[in-house]
Structures are given as structure tokens and as C-alpha cells.
């Protein structure tokens, strides 16, 4: 392969240097896949203002999947946790009493009384009755 260099450099830059940077406001995009689904975070984009941000959002991140709703949020309006504060999210694994796991013995008990246990599967299934 022999190189034939392209045309010569003729760049004299004016650019956006004098701009304050507000053209590149940051927005976070969230979407719902279907009416009965929850919002999930997609990605972030830059836009000069809210109106433009809204018309950018779907086509930038959701070109191949159904979307039933969209939130576009200015990043500065999102409250976040610092790295240190994220330690506040940790907890011990000793909270069986908050879950069905802590009440598993009931299954056996109800059998003694010849009844079916009303577990999660059974109860959530009532929606379809």
C-alpha cells in the first residue's frame, strides 16, 4: 500500500472558544418501554435548551425499541450522592423479617391444617382471577 497524502492542511481555527458553554447543557434521559413499566435511565445528551433537548432524546437513545413515555431532566436538577455518602446505602443482611423468607415455616404449618400456603406466587396470581 502506497500512501498518497490527501490535500494539504489549510485550517485556521475560529471555533467556539469565545462561547460560554451553555450550548452544551447536560440532560439525562429516562424512558418507559410500555405504559405498565417503570422509567429507566438511558443516557445523557447535550442541548442548548429544554425544547431542543426534548426533540433529541428519543432518536438518540431509543431508535430500536418501543417507547411509551419520556422524561428529559436537566442534570443539575438531579440530587446525587457523593462517593462517601454512598456508604450510607450499605446495610446488614439480617432483615429476614422484612421478607417472606423470615416466615417460611408457615408453609409447613398450613399444611398441617390442610390448607395451601398463601405465598407470593399465589397472591400475585389473584390479579388474573
Amino acid at each position: 500500500m502506497k500512501i498518497t497524502p490527501g490535500s494539504v492542511r489549510h485550517w485556521k481555527h475560529k471555533g467556539d472558544k469565545y462561547m460560554s458553554g451553555t450550548f452544551y447543557n447536560e440532560y439525562e434521559v429516562f424512558s418507559k418501554r410500555a405504559p405498565d413499566k417503570e422509567f429507566i435511565h438511558q443516557f445523557s445528551l447535550t442541548a442548548p435548551n429544554d425544547e431542543i433537548a426534548k426533540v433529541m432524546a428519543q432518536e438518540n437513545f431509543l431508535r430500536r425499541e418501543p417507547v411509551s413515555d419520556l422524561w428529559v431532566v436537566r442534570r443539575e436538577h438531579i440530587l446525587t450522592l457523593s462517593e462517601g455518602k454512598k456508604h450510607s446505602l450499605k446495610r446488614l443482611d439480617n432483615k429476614d423479617y422484612r421478607n417472606t423468607k423470615g416466615y417460611g415455616y408457615l408453609r409447613k404449618k398450613w399444611r398441617q391444617y390442610e390448607q395451601n400456603p398463601l405465598d407470593e406466587k399465589e397472591i400475585m396470581g389473584w390479579a388474573k382471577e
Binding site: 450550548f23 445528551l45 447535550t46 442541548a47 431542543i52 426533540v55 433529541m56 432518536e59 438518540n60 431508535r63
Partner: peptide, 11 residues
């Protein structure tokens, strides 16, 4: 004029 716009208008 803007990368995000490039993507959106291509659709």
C-alpha cells in the same frame, strides 16, 4: 451543527 441533532434528524 450538533452531534445529537445529526443523530435525531437522520431518523
Amino acid at each position: 451543527p450538533h452531534i445529537e441533532e445529526d443523530v435525531a434528524s437522520a431518523s
